[in-house]
Amino acid sequence: MIDDSRAMRRIVSQILEGLGYEVRDAGHGREGLDVLDEGWIPDLCTVDWNMPVMDGLQFVSAVRANPALRSVTIMMVTSESEHTQIVRALAAGAHEYVIKPFTADAIRDKLALLGLLPEEALL
């Protein structure tokens, strides 16, 4: 979970942990890349667009440029709601896009579409 808002990191982390995910978080894209550089390859990265140091689009581009990280699924979770922004994120390599504010069901539904919903969460 990469977001400059501590509260948003907590909310998304609670949703993902409730679905069975192990969550690590970062306050901006550069911190997120640092976590990945430590060798942890997650199934999913959720990332905000508007952050200091490195924004979400730059993070997506950096992950997609790294062959070791190409298998990582990326879901933008952001307040950017303009169609052109959504298209830019998907073109850069994001797999899904969730607009803030959102519900836990919205996150769960996107994970189900991606085939990333843990089996025990399919009840």
Results as ranks from 00 to 15, higher is better:
M51P: 08
S71Y: 06
Q14P: 00
S81M: 07
D109Q: 14
W49D: 09
S81F: 13
L116Q: 04
A65C: 03
P101C: 11
E22L: 14
R9D: 02
H83I: 10
L123M: 05
V87S: 06
D3K: 08
K100Q: 01
N50F: 00
G20Y: 05
G29C: 09
H95Y: 11
R6P: 09
E120N: 10
I11A: 13
I41Q: 06
G29S: 05
M75L: 15
V63I: 13
R70M: 13
L57D: 01
P118D: 01
P42I: 08
I74N: 01
E82Y: 12
R108M: 02
L116F: 11
R108P: 03
G115Q: 02
V98F: 09
E96I: 00
D4M: 13
P42N: 03
L16S: 06
R6Y: 12
A26W: 01
Y97I: 05
H83V: 11
M8R: 12
E22P: 04
V72H: 02
L36T: 10
G39V: 03
M76V: 14
Y21V: 13
S71Q: 14
L33Q: 00
A94N: 01
E82N: 13
A112M: 02
C45T: 15
L122H: 07
I99P: 04
D37R: 15
T73W: 00
L117K: 02
E96T: 11
S81Q: 08
A26M: 07
S13E: 05
E17R: 15
A112V: 00
